[in-house]
Amino acid sequence: MSFTSFADFLAMGGYAPYVWTCYGATLLTLAVIVAGLRRQKKKLMETIRLQHPERQAVAPGRIVVKQTAEDS
């Protein structure tokens, strides 16, 4: 352990703004990447769901396939 007290740790030998900015920026970058991945996945799932609406059974044994973007 290279610090004697918590206040020492926060002060970073007088370089607190520099050191903590860098650690904050790293955390932010990683968080932005992860958030981007999750949002992309959610949006993709939604678009695919909209592109392929449920195939509806009209009568037993007869299935109507709706025209979708994929078919055109």
Binding site: M1, S2, F3, F9, M12, G13, G14, Y15, Y18, V19, C22, Y23, T26
Partner: peptide, 28 residues
């Protein structure tokens, strides 16, 4: 890694505590 970089590594004799930025900068 953060614990090692922030708590358990010594300050540099020239750069002082700023050397802790290296543990982010170099890997990035």
């Amino acid at each position: 890694g953060s614990a090692l970089a922030l708590l358990f590594s010594p300050p540099d004799y020239q750069q002082g505590e700023t050397v802790r930025i290296m543990y982010l900068h170099v890997p990035a």
